[in-house]
């Protein structure tokens, strides 16, 4: 630092400026060759800066667009004024709050269903010995390979066109457009990963703790919820967060299995697209709606960032 400051003072003498800068470059080069660690740090900081800018720029742009006055099409890179009116407007033009609620409802319900059901299955796979364990596990693995498109058409027909499920029974009319039409397939779709994560975590709990709970007066099922799940909290959190985010960000079923209206349980997919199709030049509303819709998951990421990383480290990659 002090050397830098000295160089700066000297540079004021015009005659020596060229010479000085050459010397400075040489000094840096010499310093870096002697201390490659320093060079790596500088390069790292520079690269990191570039990477972060790339990540954040699109989000910043969203913000800049949201600031633009209604109807303005040529939006400058730096907003001329701070105008938050669009953030209010989105809730008045369309029932955006309801769209948000629907999405959060889907994500929460699927997460609760999946964690409950996958906990039972993960317990069985992780802690019990039974015939048929490997084939059943393998069927889960294979299932997670299939794209949603493969599952979609028969479900669409069963939900929307009264085609018999399993060739046995018909679902009640117009299940399409109710929450079930999204929750059911997304639960099935996100379950295999949750089972795998929970299985690895539950398997690591020492047998003694479960035995102790049972001797103390708990049933086997009770021990799962009172002892094994609380002790696997990082795993349960990881599986839960992954499921929640998958469902909240999901496009395919959310878009195709619902109607367009918020009152028909349409999620934010439709809410955001509603702005795009109905208010074609209100870019400020489109951007503001997008930003608002990011808030819940952004909070989740901020709160649970280290849980996600540690959960993945401890469990998910050990299979």
């Amino acid at each position: 630092m002090s050397i830098d400051a000295q160089d700066h003072d000297d540079a004021e003498t015009l005659d020596d400026q060229d010479e000085e800068s050459k010397n400075r470059v040489q000094a840096w080069a010499a310093d870096w060759i002697r201390n490659p660690q320093k060079a790596y740090t500088v390069m790292g900081v520079f690269l990191g800066g570039v990477l972060l800018t790339t990540t954040l720029f699109p989000l910043y742009w969203l913000f800049a667009v949201a600031m633009a006055p209604p109807g303005q099409t040529n939006i400058p890179l730096i907003p001329t004024r701070i105008d938050l009116y669009a953030f209010v407007d989105i809730f008045q033009q369309v029932p955006f709050a309801r769209f948000m609620f629907n999405s959060l409802f889907y994500a929460t319900t699927v997460t609760v269903v999946v964690i409950l059901v996958a906990s039972l299955a993960g317990y069985a796979f992780g802690r019990l010995d039974f015939r048929g364990k490997l084939p059943l596990l393998f069927s889960l693995l294979v299932l997670s390979w299939f794209p949603p498109a493969t599952l979609f058409l028969p479900l669409f027909r069963a939900f929307n066109q009264q085609v018999k499920m399993l060739g046995l029974f018909t679902l009640p009319t117009e299940i399409y457009g109710t929450p079930g039409a999204v929750i059911a397939p997304l639960s099935a779709f996100t379950m295999p990963l949750a089972v795998f994560i929970l299985m690895t975590f539950y398997a690591q709990i020492p047998d003694g703790l479960e035995d102790a709970a049972r001797v103390e007066g708990s049933s086997r099922i009770g021990a799962l919820f009172r002892v094994i799940m609380p002790l696997s909290a990082p795993g349960v959190a990881t599986a839960g967060i992954l499921t929640f985010i998958t469902v909240y960000t999901e496009f395919f079923f959310s878009f195709l299995m619902t109607g367009d209206k918020a009152s028909e349980w349409a999620p934010i997919v439709n809410g955001v697209l509603a702005f795009q199709s109905r208010y074609t030049v209100r870019y400020d509303l489109q951007a503001a709606a997008s930003l608002v819709a990011i808030v819940p998951v952004a909070i989740l990421v901020v709160l649970a960032q280290d849980k996600i990383v540690s959960g993945l480290t401890q469990g998910a990659l050990k299979e």
Binding site: G208, L209, D211, A212, R214, V215, G217, S219, L231
Partner: peptide, 30 residues
């Protein structure tokens, strides 16, 4: 009968205290 209905208590080799509960909660669990 399941363990909970046998009127028994057990102390384990690895001690098996519930790590997510304090001493009071561990003792009062049953």
């Amino acid at each position: 009968l399941p363990p909970k209905d046998r009127g028994i208590a057990m102390v384990f080799q690895n001690i098996a205290l519930f790590p997510h509960m304090d001493v009071y909660d561990n003792i009062s669990f049953g």
